[in-house]
Design a protein around this nucleic acid. Structure first.
Lengths: 254, 254
DNA sequence: CGCTTCGTTGAACAGCTTCAAACCTTGTGG
DNA sequence: CCACAAGGTTTGAAGCTGTTCAACGAAGCG
């Protein structure tokens, strides 16, 4: 629909799943041989997105699932009133678009946070292949389930955690997810703005900014705009769980 | 594993999907003839749960998905520290257990809110059938997706909405979901406690109680313990969306 | 270099929570 | 049948965390 860069990149991007660095982290995990070749054939030409570009928006017809190959995206919901909630940030190897399976149209919006490349998985073909390759079917369900579990964690954070814990959990989560993508597990480059982080955590920018400052003052991390270095992973881990001054009311039913 | 009542109920419970009142709302929606018979054969003897009984808990091996046939359940996450977040309430026709697909064990807990009956769908057999019945496969994915979309709404509520809006949305949602289960669309019987409601909404009991009182005072509804009558559906609908005194900070990237 | 957007900091404010206590309901046993 | 206990629900007052409002500094972009 836009961006002439797509054509230029096609040659480098056109690579099979088998040779992709993300192979074991992505949809093909656990799929080999002929099955993998079949899956590979179902994957459409890769595309690239510039920062701020939309991959799909609310109401778009559902055609495909998408895998982040490089870069990162955010998905969010926006209501009539115009306010917006970020649902997730998506890193390489992660799959987007599952929200559209229910109604055959997307009910959220996906936007690149930086220059990113994407593998497109046309759903019709994916279904064909997965009819012949049970392993793919199972893998698809697993991936959706994983997505749900991640959302549960998000929900717990929103429901029960104070602001500092939220940011700590967010950072810890990013560290964990980047851990198997890069060798450096204490340095992060945040591709999203403070507004995005705040929104994702159910806070306002000011609060997030103050928390970064405080965490820097307490020596947990070093922050400079987009770049964050975790100086004390142990302290960060501690911050992730609220230390209850008073035990919570319980809900036992035996 | 327990409860002698199970055996007694088997005869009434042993009914095929084809004759079930929930047919079109449940997993078999859109599946007919031979396909339906195959699915039906994969569904295990139904079971009943008493109020407070656990269907599965965190760490349990994943064996089956479950459909609520009657009654209602809550699913929740509980961390080491002991605090708990309710993820969802499940009404008749809704499916539970998808969280376990990723890791082959449940990562949440499901508990009956009242006397409930459940259809058990052993996953291995479900997968066999869905390999032969592509429609079932698609339907399964749709149902998971629907679940995800519902969770997104929950997330938005937690992230952006003030307390009164949360309760209003919660009630409106229950009304909507009960609407196709019963003819009466203004009366609700809340099977969950105020604690559960508060927890689900990310609030404390006191706040929820005050909100019920306020909504009653403003004539939106009439509440008496578990029973709620919506007197002014129009007002309830209005309460669901925050009327911004000041437009929010936007996130345009255009 | 000026403009705009993003990020940080400070002070006042507000909404929800915490703490406390009373009331109501339900179930139990005398 | 009633007294009592235990948990669920409601109400009030005080307190705190995060928000709002405001202003400034820093970075990216024409």
């Amino acid at each position: 629909m836009d961006s002439g860069a797509v054509i230029l990149d096609l040659n480098q991007l056109r690579r099979s799943c088998a040779s992709c660095a993300l192979h074991e982290l992505c949809l093909p995990a656990g799929i080999y041989g002929d099955d993998l070749r079949q899956l590979d054939a179902a994957i459409r030409d890769k595309r690239t997105l510039e920062r701020g570009a939309t991959l799909y928006r609310d109401g778009d017809a559902f055609r495909a699932l998408y895998v982040v190959r490089s870069g990162s995206l955010k998905t969010f919901l926006q209501n009539e009133a115009g306010d917006l909630q970020i649902l997730a940030f998506h890193l390489p190897g992660e799959i987007l678009g599952f929200d559209a399976l229910a109604s055959n149209q997307h009910v959220s919006q996906a936007e690149a946070l930086e220059h990113s490349s994407i593998c497109e998985l046309p759903y019709a073909r994916l279904m064909q292949v997965s009819n012949e390759v049970p392993a793919l079917h199972r893998q698809l369900m697993r991936v959706i389930s994983r997505e749900m579990v991640a959302e549960h964690r998000h929900l717990v954070m929103m429901g029960r955690q104070p602001a500092q814990e939220r940011l700590a959990i967010f950072l810890q989560n990013l560290v964990d997810r980047y851990a198997h993508l890069s060798r450096d597990d204490i340095s992060l480059t945040l591709s999203m703005s403070r507004y995005d982080i705040a929104n994702y955590l159910g806070l306002v920018v000011e609060t997030v900014s103050r928390l970064f400052t405080r965490m820097q003052e307490t020596g947990v991390l070093e922050v400079n705009r987009k770049s964050v270095r975790i100086l004390r992973p142990d302290l960060l881990a501690e911050l992730c769980s609220t230390q209850h001054p008073v035990p919570m009311k319980r809900h036992d039913h035996d």
